[in-house]
Computed example of a mutant assay.
Amino acid sequence: MIRIKAGVPRGVRPFVFGLPIMWGALAITYRLVCPLAQQHDLGTRIVTTAVFFAAGAGLILQVRRALLQELKQARRVARAAQNALLRPLPSRVGGLHTAVAQLSADHGARVGGDLYEVIATEHGVRVVMGDVRGHGLAALGTVAAVLGSFREAVHDEPELGSVLRRLDRALARHLAERARDDHAVAEEFVTVLLLEIRPDGELLCLNCGHPWPYRLAGTRVEALAATDPLPPLGPFPLPRELPAQSVGHLLTGESLILHTDGAEDARDGHGRFFSLPDAIAGAVRGQPVTPQTILRTVFDALLRHTAGRPTDDIALLVLRNERSTVQCGAPPGARDSDTCGSAARARPAPTYPHPTNHL
Protein backbone atom coordinates (compact mmCIF):
# COMPACT_ATOMS: atom_id res chain seq x y z
CA MET A 1 0.00 0.00 0.00
CA ILE A 2 1.31 3.43 -0.95
CA ARG A 3 1.15 5.91 1.88
CA ILE A 4 1.93 9.55 1.19
CA LYS A 5 1.22 12.15 3.84
CA ALA A 6 0.92 15.83 3.21
CA GLY A 7 2.80 18.41 5.27
CA VAL A 8 6.37 19.41 5.86
CA PRO A 9 8.76 16.47 5.45
CA ARG A 10 10.59 15.39 8.56
CA GLY A 11 14.01 16.15 7.19
CA VAL A 12 13.22 19.80 6.64
CA ARG A 13 11.31 20.45 9.87
CA PRO A 14 14.37 21.22 12.06
CA PHE A 15 15.66 23.56 9.40
CA VAL A 16 12.33 25.33 8.83
CA PHE A 17 11.45 25.81 12.48
CA GLY A 18 15.00 26.07 13.86
CA LEU A 19 16.08 29.15 11.93
CA PRO A 20 13.32 31.48 13.22
CA ILE A 21 14.00 30.29 16.78
CA MET A 22 17.71 30.97 16.37
CA TRP A 23 16.98 34.38 14.92
CA GLY A 24 14.70 35.24 17.84
CA ALA A 25 17.28 34.06 20.36
CA LEU A 26 19.93 36.15 18.61
CA ALA A 27 17.71 39.23 18.74
CA ILE A 28 17.07 38.81 22.47
CA THR A 29 20.76 38.24 23.16
CA TYR A 30 21.66 41.34 21.17
CA ARG A 31 19.21 43.46 23.10
CA LEU A 32 20.47 42.24 26.47
CA VAL A 33 24.22 42.01 25.90
CA CYS A 34 25.41 44.14 22.98
CA PRO A 35 26.47 47.72 23.99
CA LEU A 36 25.05 49.11 20.73
CA ALA A 37 21.58 48.03 21.78
CA GLN A 38 21.80 50.30 24.83
CA GLN A 39 22.36 53.42 22.75
CA HIS A 40 19.27 55.41 21.81
CA ASP A 41 20.49 57.84 19.19
CA LEU A 42 18.74 57.77 15.77
CA GLY A 43 21.74 56.58 13.77
CA THR A 44 22.30 53.52 15.96
CA ARG A 45 18.60 52.62 15.80
CA ILE A 46 18.61 52.84 12.00
CA VAL A 47 21.71 50.65 11.73
CA THR A 48 20.30 48.09 14.21
CA THR A 49 16.96 47.95 12.41
CA ALA A 50 18.63 47.52 9.03
CA VAL A 51 20.83 44.68 10.32
CA PHE A 52 17.91 42.79 11.83
CA PHE A 53 15.73 43.39 8.78
CA ALA A 54 18.42 42.01 6.47
CA ALA A 55 19.01 39.01 8.69
CA GLY A 56 15.28 38.30 8.96
CA ALA A 57 14.73 38.65 5.22
CA GLY A 58 17.60 36.28 4.54
CA LEU A 59 16.20 33.69 6.92
CA ILE A 60 12.73 33.96 5.35
CA LEU A 61 14.18 33.47 1.86
CA GLN A 62 16.13 30.43 3.02
CA VAL A 63 13.05 28.87 4.58
CA ARG A 64 10.98 29.60 1.47
CA ARG A 65 13.63 28.08 -0.80
CA ALA A 66 13.80 24.93 1.32
CA LEU A 67 10.02 24.53 1.35
CA LEU A 68 9.77 25.01 -2.43
CA GLN A 69 12.44 22.37 -3.01
CA GLU A 70 10.62 19.90 -0.79
CA LEU A 71 7.30 20.70 -2.48
CA LYS A 72 8.80 20.07 -5.92
CA GLN A 73 10.21 16.77 -4.71
CA ALA A 74 6.83 15.76 -3.27
CA ARG A 75 5.15 16.56 -6.58
CA ARG A 76 7.70 14.49 -8.50
CA VAL A 77 7.13 11.55 -6.16
CA ALA A 78 3.36 11.91 -6.49
CA ARG A 79 3.50 12.00 -10.28
CA ALA A 80 5.83 9.01 -10.35
CA ALA A 81 3.48 7.08 -8.05
CA GLN A 82 0.46 7.87 -10.20
CA ASN A 83 2.31 6.96 -13.40
CA ALA A 84 3.23 3.61 -11.84
CA LEU A 85 -0.40 2.97 -10.88
CA LEU A 86 -2.06 4.29 -14.04
CA ARG A 87 0.48 2.82 -16.42
CA PRO A 88 0.16 3.81 -20.09
CA LEU A 89 -2.28 1.67 -22.02
CA PRO A 90 -1.13 -0.09 -25.18
CA SER A 91 -2.59 1.42 -28.32
CA ARG A 92 -4.21 -1.91 -29.22
CA VAL A 93 -5.68 -4.50 -26.84
CA GLY A 94 -7.44 -7.59 -28.19
CA GLY A 95 -8.35 -5.89 -31.47
CA LEU A 96 -9.55 -2.72 -29.76
CA HIS A 97 -7.78 0.58 -30.28
CA THR A 98 -7.45 2.48 -27.01
CA ALA A 99 -6.73 6.02 -25.88
CA VAL A 100 -6.97 7.55 -22.42
CA ALA A 101 -6.43 10.97 -20.88
CA GLN A 102 -6.80 12.36 -17.38
CA LEU A 103 -7.08 15.87 -16.00
CA SER A 104 -6.67 16.45 -12.27
CA ALA A 105 -8.41 19.25 -10.40
CA ASP A 106 -5.70 19.21 -7.71
CA HIS A 107 -3.33 21.79 -9.18
CA GLY A 108 -0.94 21.45 -6.26
CA ALA A 109 -0.28 17.71 -6.25
CA ARG A 110 -1.37 17.15 -9.88
CA VAL A 111 -2.71 13.71 -9.09
CA GLY A 112 -6.28 12.50 -9.13
CA GLY A 113 -8.55 9.82 -7.76
CA ASP A 114 -9.65 8.39 -11.11
CA LEU A 115 -8.60 4.88 -12.13
CA TYR A 116 -8.76 2.81 -15.32
CA GLU A 117 -7.32 -0.31 -16.89
CA VAL A 118 -7.84 -2.45 -20.01
CA ILE A 119 -6.61 -6.05 -20.03
CA ALA A 120 -7.03 -8.85 -22.59
CA THR A 121 -7.85 -12.17 -20.92
CA GLU A 122 -9.07 -15.60 -21.99
CA HIS A 123 -12.57 -14.43 -20.99
CA GLY A 124 -12.46 -11.37 -23.26
CA VAL A 125 -11.16 -7.82 -22.95
CA ARG A 126 -11.97 -6.58 -19.46
CA VAL A 127 -12.12 -2.92 -18.54
CA VAL A 128 -12.45 -0.98 -15.30
CA MET A 129 -13.18 2.70 -14.87
CA GLY A 130 -13.50 4.09 -11.36
CA ASP A 131 -13.55 7.24 -9.29
CA VAL A 132 -12.31 7.46 -5.70
CA ARG A 133 -14.05 9.93 -3.40
CA GLY A 134 -11.89 13.04 -3.36
CA HIS A 135 -8.69 13.65 -5.27
CA GLY A 136 -5.03 14.36 -4.72
CA LEU A 137 -2.46 12.45 -2.70
CA ALA A 138 -4.97 10.93 -0.29
CA ALA A 139 -6.67 9.00 -3.10
CA LEU A 140 -3.54 7.21 -4.37
CA GLY A 141 -3.64 4.44 -1.77
CA THR A 142 -7.24 3.57 -2.62
CA VAL A 143 -6.47 3.61 -6.35
CA ALA A 144 -3.57 1.22 -5.74
CA ALA A 145 -5.74 -1.20 -3.75
CA VAL A 146 -8.53 -1.34 -6.35
CA LEU A 147 -6.31 -1.51 -9.43
CA GLY A 148 -4.02 -4.15 -7.92
CA SER A 149 -6.98 -6.36 -7.15
CA PHE A 150 -8.47 -5.87 -10.63
CA ARG A 151 -5.25 -6.79 -12.42
CA GLU A 152 -5.13 -10.08 -10.55
CA ALA A 153 -8.83 -10.95 -10.54
CA VAL A 154 -9.53 -10.48 -14.26
CA HIS A 155 -7.30 -13.44 -15.09
CA ASP A 156 -8.49 -15.68 -12.24
CA GLU A 157 -12.25 -15.17 -12.21
CA PRO A 158 -14.41 -16.43 -15.09
CA GLU A 159 -17.41 -14.32 -14.03
CA LEU A 160 -17.49 -10.53 -13.93
CA GLY A 161 -19.42 -10.64 -10.65
CA SER A 162 -16.56 -12.51 -8.99
CA VAL A 163 -14.14 -9.82 -10.17
CA LEU A 164 -16.32 -7.17 -8.53
CA ARG A 165 -16.38 -9.11 -5.25
CA ARG A 166 -12.57 -9.23 -5.27
CA LEU A 167 -12.45 -5.45 -5.71
CA ASP A 168 -14.91 -4.98 -2.86
CA ARG A 169 -12.84 -7.15 -0.50
CA ALA A 170 -9.61 -5.39 -1.46
CA LEU A 171 -11.19 -2.00 -0.78
CA ALA A 172 -12.54 -3.16 2.59
CA ARG A 173 -9.08 -4.38 3.65
CA HIS A 174 -7.47 -1.14 2.55
CA LEU A 175 -9.96 1.00 4.48
CA ALA A 176 -9.56 -1.17 7.57
CA GLU A 177 -5.78 -0.71 7.45
CA ARG A 178 -6.17 3.05 7.08
CA ALA A 179 -8.55 3.14 10.04
CA ARG A 180 -5.98 1.34 12.22
CA ASP A 181 -3.13 3.59 11.13
CA ASP A 182 -4.88 6.96 11.02
CA HIS A 183 -7.51 6.31 13.73
CA ALA A 184 -9.90 8.65 11.93
CA VAL A 185 -10.81 7.99 8.30
CA ALA A 186 -13.73 9.78 6.70
CA GLU A 187 -16.28 7.64 4.90
CA GLU A 188 -14.76 6.70 1.59
CA PHE A 189 -16.28 5.06 -1.44
CA VAL A 190 -15.35 4.19 -5.00
CA THR A 191 -17.62 4.21 -8.03
CA VAL A 192 -16.70 1.38 -10.39
CA LEU A 193 -17.75 0.35 -13.89
CA LEU A 194 -16.69 -3.13 -15.01
CA LEU A 195 -16.95 -4.11 -18.68
CA GLU A 196 -16.27 -7.33 -20.52
CA ILE A 197 -16.03 -7.13 -24.31
CA ARG A 198 -16.39 -10.62 -25.72
CA PRO A 199 -14.87 -11.81 -29.01
CA ASP A 200 -18.19 -11.27 -30.84
CA GLY A 201 -18.42 -7.69 -29.49
CA GLU A 202 -21.05 -8.39 -26.82
CA LEU A 203 -20.79 -6.02 -23.88
CA LEU A 204 -21.28 -7.31 -20.34
CA CYS A 205 -21.38 -4.75 -17.57
CA LEU A 206 -21.54 -4.29 -13.80
CA ASN A 207 -21.99 -0.74 -12.59
CA CYS A 208 -21.52 0.44 -9.00
CA GLY A 209 -22.58 4.07 -8.94
CA HIS A 210 -20.52 5.11 -11.96
CA PRO A 211 -21.70 7.11 -14.98
CA TRP A 212 -22.74 4.91 -17.90
CA PRO A 213 -20.45 5.02 -20.95
CA TYR A 214 -21.46 6.31 -24.37
CA ARG A 215 -21.32 4.40 -27.65
CA LEU A 216 -20.48 6.24 -30.86
CA ALA A 217 -21.93 4.45 -33.89
CA GLY A 218 -21.56 6.49 -37.04
CA THR A 219 -22.89 9.89 -36.00
CA ARG A 220 -25.16 8.52 -33.31
CA VAL A 221 -24.22 8.89 -29.63
CA GLU A 222 -26.14 6.76 -27.14
CA ALA A 223 -25.75 5.92 -23.47
CA LEU A 224 -25.43 2.27 -22.47
CA ALA A 225 -27.80 2.65 -19.53
CA ALA A 226 -29.46 -0.71 -18.85
CA THR A 227 -30.82 -0.47 -15.29
CA ASP A 228 -30.15 1.57 -12.19
CA PRO A 229 -26.57 1.00 -11.03
CA LEU A 230 -25.60 -0.67 -7.78
CA PRO A 231 -24.38 1.51 -4.88
CA PRO A 232 -20.69 2.51 -4.90
CA LEU A 233 -18.19 0.17 -3.31
CA GLY A 234 -17.43 0.84 0.35
CA PRO A 235 -20.50 1.97 2.30
CA PHE A 236 -22.85 -0.90 1.38
CA PRO A 237 -22.40 -4.67 0.98
CA LEU A 238 -22.81 -6.18 -2.46
CA PRO A 239 -25.97 -8.21 -3.16
CA ARG A 240 -25.81 -11.99 -2.99
CA GLU A 241 -26.29 -12.39 -6.75
CA LEU A 242 -24.20 -10.35 -9.21
CA PRO A 243 -25.16 -11.35 -12.73
CA ALA A 244 -23.44 -9.27 -15.41
CA GLN A 245 -25.84 -7.34 -17.61
CA SER A 246 -25.70 -7.47 -21.40
CA VAL A 247 -25.80 -3.90 -22.73
CA GLY A 248 -25.59 -4.62 -26.45
CA HIS A 249 -22.63 -5.03 -28.78
CA LEU A 250 -19.63 -2.98 -29.81
CA LEU A 251 -19.50 -3.64 -33.53
CA THR A 252 -16.70 -3.01 -35.99
CA GLY A 253 -16.15 0.73 -36.46
CA GLU A 254 -17.97 1.69 -33.25
CA SER A 255 -16.38 3.44 -30.27
CA LEU A 256 -17.07 3.26 -26.56
CA ILE A 257 -16.34 6.30 -24.37
CA LEU A 258 -15.97 5.70 -20.64
CA HIS A 259 -15.72 8.70 -18.33
CA THR A 260 -15.82 9.85 -14.74
CA ASP A 261 -18.51 12.16 -13.37
CA GLY A 262 -16.19 15.16 -13.53
CA ALA A 263 -16.90 15.40 -17.26
CA GLU A 264 -20.68 15.73 -17.13
CA ASP A 265 -20.65 17.69 -13.85
CA ALA A 266 -18.37 20.40 -15.27
CA ARG A 267 -20.05 23.81 -15.39
CA ASP A 268 -19.38 27.06 -17.13
CA GLY A 269 -19.48 30.52 -15.61
CA HIS A 270 -23.29 30.57 -15.80
CA GLY A 271 -23.71 27.23 -14.01
CA ARG A 272 -24.60 25.24 -17.15
CA PHE A 273 -23.49 21.60 -17.28
CA PHE A 274 -21.16 20.31 -19.96
CA SER A 275 -22.89 18.29 -22.72
CA LEU A 276 -20.65 15.28 -23.19
CA PRO A 277 -22.78 13.64 -25.94
CA ASP A 278 -22.60 16.83 -28.03
CA ALA A 279 -18.84 16.99 -27.61
CA ILE A 280 -18.46 13.33 -28.63
CA ALA A 281 -20.60 13.92 -31.71
CA GLY A 282 -18.31 16.79 -32.63
CA ALA A 283 -15.46 14.32 -33.08
CA VAL A 284 -16.99 12.99 -36.33
CA ARG A 285 -17.32 16.35 -38.01
CA GLY A 286 -14.97 16.59 -40.94
CA GLN A 287 -12.15 14.41 -39.60
CA PRO A 288 -11.26 10.73 -39.36
CA VAL A 289 -12.70 9.14 -36.24
CA THR A 290 -9.96 7.70 -34.02
CA PRO A 291 -9.71 7.37 -30.23
CA GLN A 292 -7.18 10.20 -30.23
CA THR A 293 -9.43 12.60 -32.16
CA ILE A 294 -12.34 11.81 -29.84
CA LEU A 295 -10.20 12.60 -26.78
CA ARG A 296 -8.80 15.77 -28.29
CA THR A 297 -12.21 17.05 -29.39
CA VAL A 298 -13.88 16.33 -26.03
CA PHE A 299 -11.10 17.83 -23.91
CA ASP A 300 -10.88 20.95 -26.08
CA ALA A 301 -14.63 21.47 -25.69
CA LEU A 302 -14.49 20.76 -21.96
CA LEU A 303 -11.67 23.21 -21.31
CA ARG A 304 -13.49 25.89 -23.29
CA HIS A 305 -16.63 25.22 -21.29
CA THR A 306 -14.86 25.54 -17.92
CA ALA A 307 -12.51 28.34 -19.00
CA GLY A 308 -9.61 26.00 -18.28
CA ARG A 309 -10.55 25.55 -14.61
CA PRO A 310 -12.32 22.22 -14.00
CA THR A 311 -13.37 21.68 -10.39
CA ASP A 312 -13.17 17.88 -10.38
CA ASP A 313 -10.89 15.16 -11.71
CA ILE A 314 -11.78 14.06 -15.24
CA ALA A 315 -10.78 10.83 -16.99
CA LEU A 316 -11.81 9.68 -20.46
CA LEU A 317 -11.14 6.24 -21.93
CA VAL A 318 -11.97 5.49 -25.57
CA LEU A 319 -12.20 1.95 -27.01
CA ARG A 320 -12.75 1.55 -30.75
CA ASN A 321 -13.55 -1.83 -32.26
CA GLU A 322 -11.40 -2.32 -35.36
CA ARG A 323 -11.62 -6.10 -35.53
CA SER A 324 -12.22 -7.36 -39.02
CA THR A 325 -13.27 -10.82 -37.83
CA VAL A 326 -14.63 -12.36 -34.66
CA GLN A 327 -11.71 -13.06 -32.38
CA CYS A 328 -11.27 -16.04 -30.11
CA GLY A 329 -10.75 -15.30 -26.45
CA ALA A 330 -7.01 -15.21 -25.97
CA PRO A 331 -4.65 -14.38 -23.14
CA PRO A 332 -2.56 -11.22 -23.20
CA GLY A 333 0.04 -11.27 -25.95
CA ALA A 334 -2.11 -13.06 -28.51
CA ARG A 335 -1.95 -11.49 -31.98
CA ASP A 336 -4.97 -9.70 -33.37
CA SER A 337 -4.80 -12.03 -36.38
CA ASP A 338 -5.63 -15.02 -34.16
CA THR A 339 -9.28 -15.37 -35.05
CA CYS A 340 -11.97 -18.00 -35.01
CA GLY A 341 -12.33 -17.71 -38.77
CA SER A 342 -15.91 -16.46 -38.74
CA ALA A 343 -16.84 -13.01 -39.94
CA ALA A 344 -17.80 -10.42 -37.35
CA ARG A 345 -21.37 -9.26 -37.32
CA ALA A 346 -21.66 -5.85 -38.89
CA ARG A 347 -24.55 -3.56 -39.53
CA PRO A 348 -24.49 -0.06 -40.96
CA ALA A 349 -25.02 2.57 -38.31
CA PRO A 350 -28.04 4.76 -39.03
CA THR A 351 -27.17 8.30 -39.96
CA TYR A 352 -28.61 11.12 -37.91
CA PRO A 353 -27.91 14.85 -37.97
CA HIS A 354 -25.21 15.96 -35.59
CA PRO A 355 -26.55 17.17 -32.25
CA THR A 356 -26.23 20.87 -31.70
CA ASN A 357 -23.17 21.77 -29.68
CA HIS A 358 -24.02 24.58 -27.25
CA LEU A 359 -20.46 25.07 -26.07
Rank of each mutant, 00 (worst) to 15 (best):
I257S: 04
G308K: 10
G234V: 07
R215P: 00
L26N: 01
H40T: 15
S342P: 00
E322K: 09
A315W: 05
P348S: 10
Q292D: 13
A27F: 12
L216M: 02
L316I: 15
S342H: 09
P239W: 01
R166A: 15
L36D: 13
S337I: 11
G7A: 10
L256D: 04
P213S: 09
P348N: 11
V33C: 07
D336P: 00
W23K: 01
G308F: 04
G18N: 05
D156N: 12
L233K: 06
A80I: 12
T44H: 10
V16D: 01
E222D: 12
A172S: 13
P158N: 12
T252P: 03
E177A: 14
G24I: 14
A25M: 14
Q69F: 06
T49V: 09
C34F: 12
L224G: 05
R335Y: 09
V63C: 12
L193P: 00
G43S: 11
D338Q: 10
R304A: 15
I60G: 04
R75N: 12
V143S: 07
A315E: 08
D268C: 10
N207G: 07
D338L: 15
P310Q: 02
A145K: 02
L137Y: 06
D265M: 09
R304V: 13
V12H: 02
R79V: 13
L242N: 02
L68M: 11
S255Y: 00
T98A: 11
S275Y: 01
M129A: 09
I314Y: 03
G141E: 08
L258Y: 03
